[in-house]
């Protein structure tokens, strides 16, 4: 190994050894060729715990190069501790440029959100996935769910959603809402709020999903049809917030509810911190002008 490719941490560039990267890269190519299908891969132990983004980190490490600009978000925010920790990891082992601005990033690793700023051609969105199997909570056995996907037998999922409607008058799934990709595979979009589901549909960005503990990689190529499962009489709908962001005034964005005191005081602010801060900065500029 040349000195140039050794990172600051004394490991190979982007931490993973080349053999592991090749294995992951092959899995990524198959995942892109079969949109929504979960490709098994020999996930490695990473220096962070399973369930904390090891799948996303492995995908990012296999994809990222010295010219990339990396953004890492958790819950939509760049400054949540786990996002900070993963960003610091890549700065150390790959010495890549990092950013908090969605528009500047070439690779965005995310947990639980899709940025509000529309993604563009050439960007790669890497999702951290805890449970990749959308049918897992209906059927815990891998051997069974594999057969369901093979036969395109998704009746169980529709029954579950319909039972929700019968019981609650609506589909009671608010995040990790299942989608059908390119008309074939039912896929778990990771625990993003269903608010974000429409952003996956025909996105110009490449979307890669890594589940480390469960050893699966899957993908949505750009410009791919991604439909949230629904029924004719109960079409898919996203969350709506009654008020705008209290900091930047944005509407039609996903908001966090912030508790202000112990007397029920609360406010709603943008979950996407970069989007919120950019809007506030723009507003200030306008005022100054």
């Amino acid at each position: 190994m040349s000195a140039v490719t050794m990172s600051e941490a004394g490991t190979n560039f982007a931490y993973l050894d080349e053999e592991t990267k090749r294995m992951i890269r092959r899995a990524i190519l198959k995942a892109i060729a079969i949109p929504g299908y979960q490709v098994p891969f020999a996930s490695r132990e990473m220096p962070m715990p399973y369930g904390w983004g090891t799948g996303g980190v492995q995908v990012t490490a296999a994809v990222i190069g010295p010219d990339d600009v990396l953004k890492v978000i958790d819950q939509g925010a760049d400054d949540t501790t786990n996002a900070v920790s993963i960003r610091a990891f890549f700065r150390k082992v790959a010495r890549v440029a990092v950013t908090t601005h969605t528009a500047e990033a070439t690779v965005i690793q995310t947990r639980h959100r899709i940025p509000e700023h529309p993604l563009i051609e050439g960007q790669i969105l890497v999702y951290q996935v805890p449970i990749p199997e959308p049918l897992r909570f209906l059927e815990p056995r891998e051997t069974e769910t594999r057969t369901m996907h093979a036969l395109e037998e998704y009746g169980l999922m529709h029954v579950k959603l319909y039972e929700d409607i019968a019981h609650h008058g609506r589909i009671a799934t608010s995040y990790a809402y299942p989608v059908k990709v390119a008309g074939r595979y039912v896929m778990d979009p990771s625990p993003i709020p269903k608010f974000d589901n429409p952003k996956m549909h025909l996105s110009p960005a490449l979307q890669l999903f890594g589940a480390g503990r469960e050893k699966r990689i899957y993908a949505i190529p750009p410009h791919t049809d991604v439909r949230s499962l629904d029924f004719e009489d109960h079409p898919f709908e996203i969350q709506r917030f009654d008020e705008p962001c209290a900091l930047c005034g944005a509407r039609n964005v996903y908001l966090d509810e912030v508790i202000l005191d112990d007397r029920g005081g609360r406010m709603f602010v943008c979950s996407d911190t970069d989007n919120c801060e950019s809007r506030q900065a723009d507003a200030q500029k306008e005022t100054a002008a």
Binding site: G51, W52, D74, Q75, G76, T80, T81, N82, R111, H112, R113, S174, Y175, A176, P191, I192, P193, K194, F195, Q239, Y254, L255, D256, E257, S271
Partner: peptide, 10 residues
Amino acid sequence: LPHYVDFQAE
């Protein structure tokens, strides 16, 4: 880890 986005949805 923070789960507040999903908790907000719930």
